[in-house]
Amino acid sequence: MAFALYVGLLLAQGYRRGYAWRSWLPLVAAATLALVLGCQLVFLAPADWLAWLGGDVELARTVAGGPRSVVGGAAFSLGAVLALRRALGFRGWGVLDAFAGPLCWALAVQSVGCVLVGCCWGEPTATGTWGLLYGPGTPAYAAQLAQGLLGAGAPHALPVVPTQFYHLLLCAGTGLALHLLRRRAAGWPGGSRYLLAMGLLCLGRWGIEFWRDAAGEPLLAAPLALAGYALPGLGLQWLLLLEAAALLGGWGWLVRRGQPLGADALVPAGRTPALVGLGLLAATARLAPGTLSLPETLLLQALLLAVLLAEARTALRALGRNLPRLAGLPLSLPLAGALLLATAQAPVPQQTNAPSKTITLSGGVLGN
């Protein structure tokens, strides 16, 4: 639901800003794919990234079954936008602002999932009057059992600080602040709203980490040592504090400077959108089965299909205006079939019996 809301709000932003769909759709698809994969890649050493992206099944299965962190997803998504921005025709930095609000609201929805699943839990509360109770089989229960805080057969874990709700309030509050500041921020330089939103999220997350249980923080949970001295807090807190200082400092400098770094203009992108779409299709085809969940696969399939259909429409227009209006319908069928096959995330079925004469197509997977 968080990823679907993220994409839906981005499409609405593109419509409101008047972006050309042929340039905006590939950028949204690339940012979404980088967001999904970055949440997993952040837990791998850079030396293992190529093997993971190249379809290493065992490595992909290990990573897919492990934790995820939006810290890595946001960083990879920003990198994808910066890498493709100019190639797709976006000459100003204002395109970054289009990603700020959707990410805040998507993270707010994700926080609801964290409450339901029980991840990202907080430390046991001192009084127990304000906290969440998790039963057997949940991460918080298992962690407290391993720490000796619970006895065998305890009906539930000790009440924990509802850090997931704090994160929900942080993300929703940041998104609401951006909405309320939209008129005042209209005169800010391009990219200022993105820096403000990400800076507030990092600063708020830094504060929430003081209540997080270290066993529930999969990323940089160990204390950071400097010159043989262990700094207080988690390693992630220091990273978030540095990021918050850099982002908010950059926002303050841009607003005080008062001169836009570039207009939010869009120029013709030539063949680049088609190349980006084919590159994303090839990248998803290389992923090992199970790397993406079913909702992520369906969402990316829909985005990439929209990119391919937009390119097909542009190609038909280039051939001439005498073609029938419905000429693109037959073309959409092989494009959809190729997309479903390339982005299918189910493992290839193992053939044990003699082959039959029936061929079925289900969920983008061919089976004989």
Rank of each mutant, 00 (worst) to 15 (best):
A29R: 03
P26E: 07
A172I: 12
A315Y: 13
A142D: 15
S293W: 15
A152N: 12
L150Q: 03
V160P: 00
A354F: 12
L132A: 09
A282L: 15
G135P: 00
A315I: 11
R61H: 13
I208Q: 00
V365W: 07
A126W: 11
G337V: 09
T291H: 02
A318H: 13
D264T: 01
G262I: 06
L201K: 01
T272P: 00
V160I: 14
G235A: 05
A288T: 02
E123R: 13
R184T: 14
L203F: 10
F210S: 09
F90W: 12
L309V: 10
G128L: 03
A87T: 11
L149N: 09
N322R: 15
Y141T: 04
Y15A: 15
V63E: 01
Y134P: 01
A269M: 05
P189S: 00
F90M: 08
V160H: 03
L366K: 08
L366N: 03
P260Q: 12
G233T: 02
D97N: 05
A186P: 00
R205E: 14
V109T: 09
L145S: 11
R182S: 05
P218K: 04
L59V: 09
L168W: 15
Y15C: 14
R68F: 04
E209G: 01
L107E: 06
A108F: 06
A185R: 11
L37T: 03
R182N: 05
P189K: 02
Y6S: 05
T174D: 08
A146F: 12
V267A: 09
L116H: 10
L247K: 01
A230D: 14
Q345W: 01
L248W: 10
T163Y: 07
A288D: 01
P159Q: 12
R86N: 09
A45V: 11
T314C: 14
V63M: 05
R183F: 12
T138N: 02
L335M: 07
G66H: 03
L234G: 07
A310C: 06
L78V: 11
W21Y: 11
R61W: 12
L170V: 08
L25N: 06
A222V: 13
Q147K: 15
L305C: 04
V276N: 00
G320K: 07
L78Q: 07
C120K: 05
N322S: 14
R86H: 14
